[in-house]
Design a protein around this nucleic acid. Structure first.
Length: 220
DNA sequence: AGCCAGGCTACCG
DNA sequence: CGGTAGCATGGC
C-alpha cells in the first residue's frame, strides 16, 4: 500500500487544497505561513470543534457571527453571555454541547500562554476526541499529526478492502505516519485531499454522487 | 422532503 | 468493553 502514490493521485485529481480555510484567507493557494499568530490558531481550533459532524458552510456562519461581534478572541468568548454565544453557534448545530466544548477549550487555550499543547492534554478535554485533537495540532500548531476521519477510513476500505486495513483510529493514524515522512505540510494537504475526494462519494453506499467537475478524470 | 455533514459522549447490553 | 442513540442546524 503506497500512501505517497495515493497522495500523488489525489493531488493530480483535485489539485492543491490550501487548508485550513481561515476567514481571512479562505481556501487559498498553498501558503504555509498561516496561521500567523495565536488569534488565527484559536480560530482554527474553534473551527475544528464546530465542524464535528457538521458541514463547513454552517461553521463559517458561526465564525462570521463571532467575528462580526468581535468575539473571535479567547478573552471575549469567556466574557460573553451564554445566550449571545448560543445564537452565534446555532448554525453549526448541537449548540448546547458546542458552547460547553468551546468554553472548556478556550479556558485551556488561555492557560497555555502561547505554548503548544500536547496531544494528551487536548484529548483530556471534554468534547475533544482524536480527530479534533489532531486537526488542532496539525493546522493550528503545524505538528505533523495525521488526521483520520470517516472519509479516510472509507477511502482505504474502498481501495484496499476492509480486511486489509486497520479499522480503529489509532492504527489508521499509525499506518499513515509510519508510511510517510513526518512533514506537516504533506499531512495538511493529504487530509484536505481526502476530504475533497470524500465529499464526492455517498458515505453509506460508497457510490459516487454526481461530480461537480472533471467527469473525465480517472477516479481514485 | 429527506438525507447528510471534516465527531464525541454517555449509556446500554 | 464494543456498539449506538442523542445531540441540532442548514444545504442540496
Amino acid at each position: 500500500m503506497n500512501l505517497l502514490k495515493l497522495y500523488d493521485d489525489l493531488y493530480q485529481k483535485y489539485g492543491p487544497q490550501g487548508w485550513w480555510p481561515l476567514l481571512e484567507t479562505g481556501y487559498q493557494k498553498l501558503d504555509f505561513s498561516y496561521p500567523k499568530n495565536q488569534t488565527q490558531s484559536f480560530e482554527i481550533a474553534l473551527g475544528a470543534i464546530l465542524t464535528q459532524n457538521t458541514a463547513w458552510l454552517n461553521v463559517e456562519k458561526t465564525l462570521n457571527n463571532l467575528k462580526n461581534q468581535e468575539l473571535l478572541l479567547p478573552e471575549k468568548i469567556l466574557a460573553a453571555p451564554d445566550k449571545v454565544l448560543q445564537n452565534a453557534i446555532r448554525s453549526s448545530g448541537y449548540y448546547n454541547q458546542k458552547l460547553k466544548k468551546i468554553k472548556i477549550f478556550t479556558t485551556f487555550f488561555l492557560s497555555l500562554k502561547n505554548r503548544t499543547p500536547a496531544r494528551n492534554e487536548l484529548l483530556n478535554l471534554w468534547g475533544i476526541g482524536p480527530e479534533t485533537a489532531d486537526s488542532i495540532l496539525l493546522y493550528a500548531y503545524k505538528i505533523p499529526s495525521f488526521v483520520i476521519d470517516a472519509y479516510t477510513k472509507r477511502l482505504l476500505i474502498n481501495l484496499y478492502g476492509a480486511d486489509k486495513i486497520p479499522q480503529n483510529y489509532h492504527d489508521l493514524k499509525n499506518l499513515f505516519e509510519t508510511n510517510l515522512p513526518a512533514d506537516y505540510e504533506l499531512f495538511q494537504e493529504y487530509h484536505a485531499l481526502i476530504v475533497a475526494n470524500g465529499k464526492l462519494v455517498n458515505l453509506k453506499t460508497y457510490k459516487p454522487v454526481l461530480p461537480k467537475v472533471n467527469r473525465s478524470d480517472q477516479s481514485v
